[in-house]
Design a protein around this nucleic acid. Structure first.
Lengths: 340, 340
DNA sequence: GGTCAAGAATGCAACGTTGCAATCGTGGAT
DNA sequence: ATCCACGATTGCAACGTTGCATTCTTGACC
């Protein structure tokens, strides 16, 4: 079966403890002993048993990432960055998806899952953050959604300002009838609410009308939802010359619908997205979007979680990652090389 | 700290073993005892310690999925399906990415990683499958790449036939100068080799020339590589009226380059991809592609791995998942509703 | 009434590791 | 020569759980 410390110890003629000392780079081991033991370790292919180590140390060196859907490019990109970053620091990431189901979201965040992770980074969807905060027992970092102050750590970009900028960009292009796709009035989605708020603020500031009919709600935030919402907008009474979509996926769906209707982007309708996923950069036309600094989000979330694991009593933090408006063809039209 | 069986036992006035019996639905427990213990379990919020259970049982109920890059849509979609499927059967999936680095690929597949997983599904990239087979100690299922017979389980679609179909589709449209993007002569990439073989076979069968200059090698399989390869093709001496890309990402990159050059798809150049990622369905023009049955791939891989975990000595299996050619606008041009 | 079977509950030991403390040996300081 | 300090090595116990075997209880059956 599997090789244990005992097997190595027997073969090397030392105690189990000494093998452990070698395996863990404990300083007080004589050079020749270390060499001999290490040789046997390599020979037998010893690998520490994670379960035993974890049981003894009370640490798993693993964190969980709980997202609605891994296949969604934004989360996939974020997960990729996080995994890379965590690995550099000796941590492992356990990715879980909830498919947007409240039950699973609760289960995966209610304390370190079966204590097989030391902490969890979660992007909530179905369960209001405050509820997660109430039931959480272990270190938990919220992405996007914020909970009541004093409860959980939180990392996000400034959604309101970003959305204002996106909308102002459209206003600046001379668009007068600017729709929004991605509201979620039926869900407690704070992110959608903030993006809507930024959109409304910018319109108000520009003195533009903001009829309810120009705000399209969606159930989920994926391409089909964006396509359907755009179809509804085009069928509506208001003519639309610009759309601000709350995610790039929604925007890509909208682009598709516009193309199917023979409308030109940006000449007839300008489109702005949110997230800066790679698909948007390679779409035709390429997608103008709010580009959150995903590396920073991942870095801050990891920092935050690790710090909290080390010091569970620390005051909660509310961190803001940067973002910028990436202007591309879907608003300015100039066909150019892919923006890196 | 965390609640253990002992805590529950003390509070419920029973032995530790009995609490364990309740927690594990052991049949011979009196109804009233069960109720009482269960109440305390809920009260205290007891959750079994995964490490201890795993140490004792020798099973983690977790499988690993090792891929080059989670952010790559094909792998993200596959991972999503696999996680969902595994959860239905009570398994957890641990996703790891290698970033295409041989060292990490080896480490993550050399036996159950730190024995923290019971088996691994791997999509090899940098390390030849035969090498993985030689060094593996635990259950391992290969995706895509095949190892020498008699060594490892393997799940893939029929890459050669699929590539023939893709190429034949282009031939059937009357295209005469059909390029290929995605060869990887410098890597031991069996999948690329098979796709190239299918492409060549189809061309030969159609009596079309297949000059070397029409086969573009790439380092990786992502959008930028496809865009760069397409740029090289357009700069070459041969005129091209069709391109078969070995992944959808490459194809999306190629589409982008074609658009930048003002070339119409499919009128000037028809494009076929491979993988059927969601981006391709929503691209404009939507992407004709080989659509592997990803659900089946995930299901077969999981079946295969679980069976091997239960019976490590079973003969190795070589399973083939289905695929179909999804014809869309990038070859036929008709703008239509998104194909679900 | 006595025997037996099966249900219900329990104790002990072990999974492989590491924290702690103890032990042994050696060389330098006194 | 004696003592001390520190390096090197070790044994013991415990982390929380479950397999196995055992004990105790109850009810059925002859």
């Amino acid at each position: 079966m599997a090789v244990s410390l005992r097997d190595v110890a027997a073969r090397a003629g030392v105690s189990v403890r000494t093998v452990s000392n070698v395996a863990n780079d404990f300083p007080h081991v004589a050079p020749d002993t270390r060499l001999r033991v290490q040789t046997v370790i390599d020979e037998l292919g010893y690998r520490p048993n994670a379960a035993a180590r974890q049981l003894r140390r009370g640490r798993t060196e693993t964190i969980g990432l709980v997202v609605p859907d891994i296949a969604s490019p934004y989360f996939a990109e974020l997960a990729s960055l996080l995994v890379r970053l965590a690995e550099q620091r000796g941590w492992t990431v356990h990715i879980d998806q909830t498919d947007g189901e409240a039950q699973r979201e609760r289960r995966m965040t209610a304390g370190p899952v079966g204590r097989s992770v030391d902490g969890v980074i979660v992007s909530p969807w179905a369960v209001p953050p405050d509820e997660l905060a109430r039931h959480s027992v272990g270190p938990l970092v919220l992405l996007g959604e914020r909970a009541a102050p004093g409860s959980l750590d939180h990392v996000a970009i400034d959604n309101i300002t970003a959305s204002e900028q996106a909308t102002e960009h459209l206003v600046g292009l001379g668009r007068r009838s600017i729709a929004a796709i991605g509201a979620q009035p039926h869900l407690h989605n704070g992110t959608a609410r903030m993006r809507l708020e930024g959109y409304r603020t910018a319109l108000a500031r520009a003195g533009l009308p903001a009829p309810e009919a120009l705000v399209e709600p969606v159930d989920r935030l994926h391409r089909p939802d964006g396509a359907a919402a755009m179809t509804r907008l085009l069928a509506g009474r208001h003519s639309v010359d610009a759309v601000f979509c709350f995610t790039d996926e929604l925007a890509l769906g909208a682009l598709r619908t516009l193309a199917e209707h023979g409308l030109r982007v940006p000449e007839d309708v300008a489109v702005v997205g949110f997230d800066d996923i790679e698909d948007g950069r390679y779409a035709t036309p390429s997608l103008t979007t709010i580009s959150p600094d995903k590396s920073e989000v991942a870095r801050l979330a990891l920092d935050c979680l690790v710090r909290r694991i080390d010091d569970p009593g620390a005051p909660d933090r509310d961190l803001v990652a940067g973002h910028r408006l990436a202007v591309r063809e879907s608003t300015t039209g100039r066909v150019s090389r892919v923006d890196p």
